[in-house]
Amino acid sequence: MTALPPALRDGLDLMVTEVCRYSERLVSLRMRAADERPLPSYVPGSHLAVACGDGINAYSLTGSGLYPERYAVSVRLDAAGAGGSVAMHRLRPGDVLRSSRPRSQFAPVAQARRHLLLAGGIGVTPILSHARAAHEWGTSADVLYVHRPGEGIHAAELRELAGPQLSVACLTSREAFGRALRGRLAGSPLGTHLYACGPEPFMEAVLRAAREHGWPEGRLHAESFGAASLDPGEPFGVKLPDGTRIPVPAGVSLLEALESAGRAVPNMCRQGVCGQCALTVTAGRPLHRDHYLTEAEKEENRLIMSCVSRSLDRELEVRP
């Protein structure tokens, strides 16, 4: 048995309300909460971790994030990928998906003088979110979007946002993008933050060019979908001093497994920082995932924080 990872367990059931096909490979989905409750606001550039098909995939939200009536994501069909995009492309209005709450890993910097927003292909989705938020809050942004001819999903929405504080250029050739990028890298005011999202080669090229132009690392932001807190871990078992054995399935913490077995452990944060839920390890090697123990303590393998850490071995022996 595998339980959902925590981010999805505490997540949302979303119902597809509209499917909008832009091209054979590009589709946009709009969703509302299946229970019709208001959807949480989100930080521009946030993504949803969605269980669809065999795995869990991250999709950027394209709205500004302020009181969204719908969550919208766009998905590019990747026939060679793990199958998530294929399943997403099969969705029809009325279908329900399990999703995390919006997760922020690509947030705007409030203090930035300007945001230079760079999108390659389907990487336009979080960039559109940033541009919409900049438009709503009247902050300054400069958008460059490069895409293949006929695949310029969201180019029209971006152009509609253009105004005195927000410039938008959508380009279909790499050379034109390269020229425009160098112009922006040389001409953006000090205090501009660069945000890039797109395929690996695009990101590498953009970041390399920015470094060559002397942009400091602290001003460069690249979207990456971290697996943090999405990893359900491997199943293992614990043996208690009285000989009881308790299974810990994937997606369930040691602390939760002990609690369900009626063996409560003192705890507080349930996030691996407060140190309350420590157990002593008498056999087996813990897989430390906490932020409480020092590196040296982790190497000793004498303590385990039961709210987040797991086991490298099939069985751990622990005592309170």
Partner: peptide, 9 residues
């Protein structure tokens, strides 16, 4: 009583 990172939900 000692200081600790005493955060809870």
């Amino acid at each position: 009583y000692r200081y600790s990172t005493n955060v809870e939900p």
